Amino acid sequence: MSNNETGSGGRGTSTTAAASAEGRRPSTRPGTGLVTVLRVGSSRVGYETRMYFRTTDSVFFTFLFPFIMLAIFTAAFGSSGNIGTAPDGSGGISVGAYYLPGMLAAGMLLSGVQNLAVDIAGEKGDGTLKRLGGTPLSPLSYFIGKIGQVLVTGVFQAALLILVARVLLGIDLPTDPEKWLTFAWVFLLGVITSAFLGIALSALPRSGKSATAVVIPIVLVLQFISGVYLQFYLLPDWMQNAASVFPLKWMAQGMRGVFLPDSFASLEQNESWDFPLIALNLLIWLVVGLVLSRVTFRWIRKDT
């Protein structure tokens, strides 16, 4: 072998070692074409979904939690009468019907933000991401797998929650096709936005063990100020304004616009459902989440 060949091989080895040491893959990795990236990402959706349902705490705290809370609110406050009744006591809707939109919005947030933030932080802590970083898997394929899992489980969760509300709790559902079209785009935007924000938030915990302690309080506070557990129109103005900064408020408002009677629109901040404003805010947060997730994501933590 010539000296030139030896030198070339040495530089290649050094480049690979340096890239590995910094937590990056070498630039000449196989399988980086868009078709391959999409194919690998799609195949990971099934894997991620199976792993999700095999994790007991994830299923309980993200998938079943909205069901439990809806049942608790219905049982605890159902005897107090309908919400939004007229002065003569007529009209209004049941407690379960009022809280159904909030539970749907909470399910979107839990499936995306809480589930992915805790899950990815755990994968960083146990070395899973470090091992994946040594394979041809691209970050985009990894993101597709995670977001696809959130979409699949989110659709299943929402469908089951609506079915339970109708069959077991006797809650009336919308009959207008336009309402269901609104539900579709609010749900899709909300789930994808939550997924990107969950990926971005996973960079915050210092370790996998601390992820739950860091993420759950954030998610819990957002649910209380965004009209999920409390009637939003009864919250003080400053709290409503604070909630308007974050996406959950708009997700919950969108779901209320779908499932509550139009007369309840007067209880919102602008006395209307504001669907264009809902779409704008969710799109803004989707872009913010996308940028943050790509900027902050690392196969290996910088401080490792």
Score class of each variant (00 low, 15 high):
120 I>G: 01
112 G>C: 04
111 S>D: 08
74 T>G: 15
71 A>T: 15
63 F>P: 10
67 F>T: 09
129 L>I: 03
116 L>Q: 12
46 G>K: 09
98 Y>Q: 08
82 N>K: 14
51 M>Y: 07
118 V>M: 12
127 G>T: 00
100 L>N: 04
89 G>W: 03
118 V>G: 00
74 T>F: 04
68 I>R: 11
80 S>D: 12
73 F>H: 06
54 R>M: 08
94 S>W: 11
99 Y>S: 03
63 F>S: 08
66 P>N: 10
87 P>N: 03
97 A>L: 09
113 V>L: 12
75 A>K: 08
134 G>E: 01
106 A>S: 13
86 A>T: 08
51 M>F: 00
132 L>R: 04
107 G>A: 08
55 T>Q: 11
67 F>C: 10
54 R>L: 14
117 A>G: 13
49 T>M: 06
94 S>H: 01
89 G>N: 02
134 G>K: 05
92 G>I: 03
67 F>D: 01
72 I>H: 02
71 A>V: 15
79 S>K: 13
111 S>K: 11
122 G>M: 05
107 G>F: 06
57 D>T: 15
55 T>W: 13
118 V>P: 00
77 F>E: 06
41 G>F: 09
71 A>F: 10
95 V>L: 00
44 R>V: 00
78 G>Y: 04
127 G>W: 06
72 I>T: 06
119 D>L: 12
98 Y>W: 08
75 A>T: 14
60 F>N: 05
99 Y>I: 02
107 G>T: 01
58 S>K: 09
62 T>S: 14
116 L>Y: 12
91 G>D: 01
129 L>D: 13
54 R>D: 07
41 G>M: 04
